[in-house]
């Protein structure tokens, strides 16, 4: 019995699949544990916690911001809305990748969702990118199927899991609205 075997291995947080229309509605961010290094989660309105998300969409805008601390913001659109994705010096790999990609094509983004309250009091959800890579349209269509399936899965379990009970309390989620979002997303990728 070695020490390495005895230690619980680090478990990577999975990347949740979420449509832009749902992520936009996310407001509640919480930490699981009191440690400084405890993972932070955004509670999705359909009732699952997400520390990390995976999204695919068309990159419509790229902006370089900041003077001394340069960072990039990009907009990525799926069929339901816009994701706001950024990468700064702490995400140097994603930043390097973004530098090389011009808007207009599809990109796949792995990143961490964060909820911020702006000085004027409005709440804004963005994604801090870990990786941004150019992909083809087929990957976007597969992602839409994948995200539709996982969103429907969350809706089917809604009210039965601890996180979804919390989501119902916090967001008073209308599950029919999210079914409609899924349906519309699927219709828009019809060949």
């Amino acid at each position: 019995m070695t020490e390495t075997d005895r230690q619980a291995r680090f478990r990577r947080e999975p990347a949740r699949r979420v449509f832009a229309a749902e992520l936009r509605e996310s407001r509640l961010q919480f930490k699981d544990g009191n440690d400084e290094k405890s993972p932070s989660f955004v509670l999705l309105p359909t009732g699952d916690r997400s520390n990390r998300i995976f999204l695919v969409g068309k990159m419509t805008q790229k902006d370089k911001k900041g003077d001394q601390n340069v960072f990039f913001t990009i907009r990525v659109e799926d069929t339901t809305g816009t994701f706001f994705v950024n990468a700064g010096s702490y995400q140097d790999e994603a930043m390097r990748q973004i530098r090389q990609i011009e808007p207009g094509g599809y990109v796949a983004v792995v990143g961490k969702p964060t909820v911020r309250t702006t000085p004027d009091g409005s709440v804004f959800v963005s994604v801090r990118a870990e990786s941004v890579t150019p992909v083809d349209e087929e990957t976007f269509r597969i992602w839409t199927l994948d995200t539709a399936e996982q969103t429907l899965g969350r809706l089917d379990r809604f009210g039965e899991t601890e996180d979804s009970v919390k989501a119902r309390e916090f967001y008073t989620t209308d599950t029919r609205k999210y079914r409609q979002i899924v349906y519309d997303a699927l219709v828009r990728i019809q060949p």
């Binding site: 087929e138 597969i142 199927l145 539709a148 399936e149 089917d156 699927l186 019809q190």
Partner: peptide
Amino acid sequence: AAFDATRHTALLNRAAASPE
């Protein structure tokens, strides 16, 4: 993986069916 049209149809039906 490739885009699967059958899966697409099945998901459309699933999204359209209201569980209520």
